[in-house]
Amino acid sequence: MSLFRVVRAVADASGEGAVDWRAVSEAAKAATSPGSLALTDEQRAGYARDVEDARDRVRTVTGIGFDLPETVEVQHRHHWIDANVATFERVMEPLADEVGPLPGLARSMNSGTMAISLAFLANNVLGQYDPLLLAEGEPHKLYFVHPNIEKVARSLRVDAPRFRRWIAFHEVTHAAEFGAAPWLPGRLEAAMQEAIEGLGEGKLDREAMRELDTTMTAVEGYAELVMDRAFDGEYADLRAKLEARRRGRGPIARLMRRFLGLGMKRQQYERGKAFFDAVADARGVEAASVVWSDPEFLPTSEELDDPSRWLARVPV
């Protein structure tokens, strides 16, 4: 980490908008070690094998026909920042002109905040299915952040190839969801834009936030279900240790996770998985997959907490 480069990038933030995204990228990278991407031939082959095997198993277990994205990348942390800074810029576009009475100071503070957020995420993201929201016509992508996968496997004291493979099943399940539900990106984009525009008007659009949270709870909960039930190996120890990691962390990490809404993300994982576990236990994983066949079949917030209501409403 180069503190001088971080401060200089933020202090030199320029332009006319509320955030200088060039400065954000530079500062986030200066605050983050890229990590090693010196993969062995076996590791490279392992990623490819994991993704292909996950595709085949997820197709079989869920009954969903889908294809993998054309782009599947094994990245280091700086690659991940490059891939995501444009998404952050698109999402925050409705607030682009909200610079306030001291635009230079506000721009530097906003740019610094976004850089810290990206740097924290870059150090913690394991894999990402990227639907490139608000990027019309852009093909979806799939990323694995190799240094983080290796680091977390070591910290959890689990076999790195097995952990990597289990994570691949989670991310490939996202490909299945978006492949089965072409309406899903539009739904997420609409709720996201409404929420951001509300913030730009100085209000919290609770309905849009509720819609976004409910949809993402379904997206993450289904992926949690399938990564376990489609996985072709032992995963109970991985599940227990990963969930303990999500709940744990030191005070600074907990503060950052709260600031970035990652506590809500953990709740989405847990609440969504509990819903889909109940549905799959009652009717099977293929029945749970019906949720992606029609927007009307998404569970409501109330149904997420009472799966029997969804089972009574949806023909599975």
Results as ranks from 00 to 15, higher is better:
S117I: 10
G127P: 03
S108C: 08
N110I: 03
G127E: 02
S111G: 07
D97V: 11
N124R: 06
L121V: 09
V99A: 09
L121A: 02
S111Y: 06
L132G: 09
G112T: 04
S108F: 01
A119N: 03
L118T: 04
M109C: 12
V91D: 13
A119F: 00
E93S: 14
L133Y: 15
S111M: 02
T113S: 15
P131T: 09
P101D: 09
A119S: 04
L102C: 11
V125P: 01
T113N: 14
D130E: 09
N123T: 03
N110E: 07
G104W: 11
G127D: 02
L118S: 04
S108Y: 05
L126N: 02
V91Q: 15
P131R: 04
T113V: 13
N110G: 06
A106I: 10
R107W: 02
L118K: 03
L132A: 14
P103K: 03
L105K: 10
V99L: 07
A96D: 10
F120C: 01
G104C: 10
A96V: 08
F120V: 01
T113L: 12
F88M: 15
G127W: 00
V125F: 02
G100A: 05
M92T: 14
S111H: 05
N110V: 04
F120W: 05
M92N: 13
V125T: 03
A119T: 00
N123Q: 09
L102P: 07
N124E: 06
V99G: 05
L102H: 12
L121Y: 06
M109F: 14
G112N: 01
E89C: 07
D130A: 11
M109W: 12
N110A: 07
R90I: 11
P131D: 10
A115N: 00
L102T: 11
P94M: 11
V91S: 11
P103Q: 07
N123H: 04
M114Y: 10
M92E: 14
L133K: 09
T113D: 13
L121W: 05
E98W: 11
S108P: 07
R90K: 15
